[in-house]
Amino acid sequence: MMKNKLKLKKVNNIFSVVLEDYTKYIKDFPIIIPAGFRTDGASIPLILRPFFERYGKNTEAAVIHDFLYSKFNSTGINRELADRIFLFILKENGVSWRVRKMMYEAVRMFGDIFWEKKIQNEGYRNKAIIDKSEEAKCYYSEWEKKLGKL
């Protein structure tokens, strides 16, 4: 699989725009971020900005996470998996264990207010944690294979 580079153009001190379609593969599953998608990088509260970068090693994970939380996400990936994919990419990109753990915990605690209704499929959202159907078990077991134990 060919890997392309994430190209961003700063719009102002906070926002950037994706310049070209960007595809990130989680094992064999493609997540496509379209050109023109607007992101704020890592959404860091003002008080913590001296300690964490909005853009840096975490940029790819933050942009993909922003997309998965947006109304444009038609992948069927739910919020819990979006957060796990964020953690997976942070680890893959060499973000330290301490920083990625704090960032992951922050999106788990506060992310729900940013989760947008989806144009198409909203996957299982968080319902499947208690859903014992075969479909739900299959959905999560496939992602366990892709992401591994985190």
Rank of each mutant, 00 (worst) to 15 (best):
K27H: 04
S43C: 07
M2Y: 06
G148I: 08
E80W: 14
N93E: 12
D40A: 10
A106D: 07
R38W: 04
D28H: 14
F114P: 00
V63Q: 01
N12V: 05
M103W: 14
E53P: 03
K137C: 02
K132R: 09
E80K: 04
A136W: 07
M2A: 11
F15Y: 15
L6Y: 10
S43H: 13
V18A: 05
N58E: 15
D83T: 04
R100W: 06
R98G: 00
V107I: 15
L19K: 04
R84S: 12
L68I: 08
S16E: 10
K7C: 13
D83M: 03
F52T: 04
S70K: 02
N126Q: 02
L90V: 05
F110Y: 15
V95R: 01
R79Q: 13
H65P: 00
N4H: 08
R38M: 14
S74H: 08
Y139P: 03
D40K: 08
M1E: 02
T23L: 01
E135S: 14
A128C: 13
S141E: 09
S43W: 11
G41S: 06
E122I: 10
F51S: 07
I130S: 00
K27R: 11
W97D: 11
S16W: 12
G148Y: 09
L87A: 02
K10I: 06
K24Q: 05
F37K: 09
L87F: 11
E105C: 01
S43M: 08
K145V: 10
N58G: 13
I44F: 08
